[in-house]
């Protein structure tokens, strides 16, 4: 699981003095830096983007880095945003919503967060998976109190949007949070 420290990328690609992810041009440069890291990693691995050392994230950079990466690679590779603060979340939420995107995140306390456009049923399933680590479709059906077919639809959506993984046998879904 490659962990991509965004502050390091920022300092390598733009300026060693910067600690804030702000402006379009900075976001563009950071995204290019992230893409270089991703190009060297197995496409099936979860790409962990680490915001722990990023002080300020503005809307322009949230769009230029996170939204554009998810738009470009989000259907083929799972992403996890980790170390996000409440302030980062304030920038990420509207940007993801604007594009109809969703993302799995972990805050600075290590708690799972699910951002962007997610239905209530999907959110409940994601929370359950984050708590248990993994589950089978029947577990999800029980938890949501819905028929197995409906639970399968939820899991299919999560898998299609790369918000969860499956095990090798394909009979369990695994949380990435």
């Amino acid at each position: 699981m490659p962990t991509i420290d965004l502050r390091s990328i920022l300092q390598e690609t733009v300026s060693g003095w910067y600690g804030d992810l702000v402006t379009r041009s900075t976001g563009h440069a950071v995204r290019r830096g992230v893409e270089e890291v991703l190009a060297e990693c197995d496409g099936e691995q979860v790409a962990v983007m680490d915001f722990s050392s990023v002080r300020l994230l503005d809307l322009s950079c949230a769009d230029e880095v996170v939204a554009k990466l998810l738009l470009q690679y989000g259907r083929t590779r799972p992403f996890l945003l980790c170390g996000i603060s409440e302030d980062h979340q304030e920038a990420l939420e509207p940007v993801l919503r604007r594009h109809g995107l969703a993302a799995v995140a972990r805050d600075r306390m290590g708690r799972a967060r699910f951002l962007g456009v997610i239905t209530e049923r999907v959110r409940v399933a994601l929370i359950m998976l984050a708590e248990r680590g993994s589950a089978e479709v029947e577990d999800v059906a029980d938890h949501l109190a819905v028929p197995t077919s409906a639970a399968r639809e939820v899991l299919d959506e999560l898998l299609e949007r790369r918000l969860v993984l499956t095990n090798a046998a394909g009979n369990q879904v695994i949380s990435i949070a």
């Binding site: 804030d20 702000v22 402006t23 379009r24 300020l56 503005d58 809307l59 322009s60 302030d87 304030e90």
Partner: peptide
């Protein structure tokens, strides 16, 4: 406290209007 980052973010976006 969370007003501070929002303030800086608003400042950043306002300034970027000039640049962009």
């Amino acid at each position: 406290p969370q007003a501070t980052m929002g303030f800086a973010m608003a400042l950043s976006e306002a300034c970027q209007n000039i640049v962009e």
